[in-house]
Simulated assay, not measured.
Amino acid sequence: MTRAKICGITRPEDALLAERLGAWAVGFILVPGTKRYRPPEHARRISEQLGPFICRVGVFQDSPPEAVLAHMAQAKLQVVQFHGFEPPAWAEEVRRHYPLIKAFKLSGPADAAMLEQALTYPCDALMLDGVNPGSGQGYPLAWLEPFLGHPRLIVAGGLNPENLPSVLALQPYAVDVSSGVEESPGVKDGQKVRSFLDVVSRSAQL
């Protein structure tokens, strides 16, 4: 069964809708200067409104472990997502406290060096994203093929309700969406969220 994460949450109503419609996780962008950034205390206010069976993910980019751990505690989140060029030693430190998702950006087919780096990185799940995360820009599905043997592969980058079925046919561990279900950066479109999660749910029943 493929799980779904709704990322770029900035409003409590969007988080609660995602939870009600069956999302497995919601993501909070803790990268200052980005369109969907909100400070940790804002994420905490939303997190505290959610029930116990939906995962709260904090997304970081090139923040050292001490900052990540402080912000995770402040925001009351449960899983860390690295989305930059964090060295493996940072991952190992964070994983002493939280499960970790590591994202790699695909700008073309993976060469041997990139493939080895991604498949040996110390993490609990591997995410593949587009070269400009949050932009809605995707990539050819053929670029995913070398990674499909990973037991916890998360596919992100340009997903929306229309192109989701072809990704689900690959049976990844999870899919991740942000701009593909938005009205504007950080503001989710309820009908698009519903349609996205309906597609995920239907695929699980096949």
Rank of each mutant, 00 (worst) to 15 (best):
C55L: 14
P99A: 09
G58R: 04
P65D: 06
V131E: 13
V131L: 13
D111E: 12
G22T: 10
V68T: 06
F28L: 12
A73C: 04
A75E: 12
R45M: 10
G134F: 07
R56P: 00
G27R: 08
G27Y: 11
T120P: 06
G134H: 04
L115Y: 08
A43D: 03
A113D: 13
D111Y: 07
F104S: 08
S135D: 11
K102H: 06
R95L: 11
D124S: 04
G22E: 06
Q74H: 05
V94Q: 13
A112H: 13
Y139H: 04
V57N: 05
A91Y: 03
L128E: 00
E66A: 13
E66D: 15
L30V: 07
R44K: 14
R95S: 00
R36Q: 10
M127Q: 13
P64K: 10
G130N: 08
P52T: 09
L119Y: 06
A118E: 02
A110T: 01
A75Y: 09
A89M: 02
V68R: 00
A73D: 12
P88D: 11
A75I: 08
Q74N: 02
I101C: 05
A70Y: 03
Q61C: 15
Q49S: 13
E41R: 12
K105W: 07
A125I: 00
L77N: 02
K105D: 01
S107W: 09
P40S: 01
R95P: 01
A75T: 05
L30C: 04
H71V: 05
A118I: 04
C55S: 13
E92L: 15
G108Y: 08
G33S: 12
P140T: 09
G130H: 01
A91E: 00
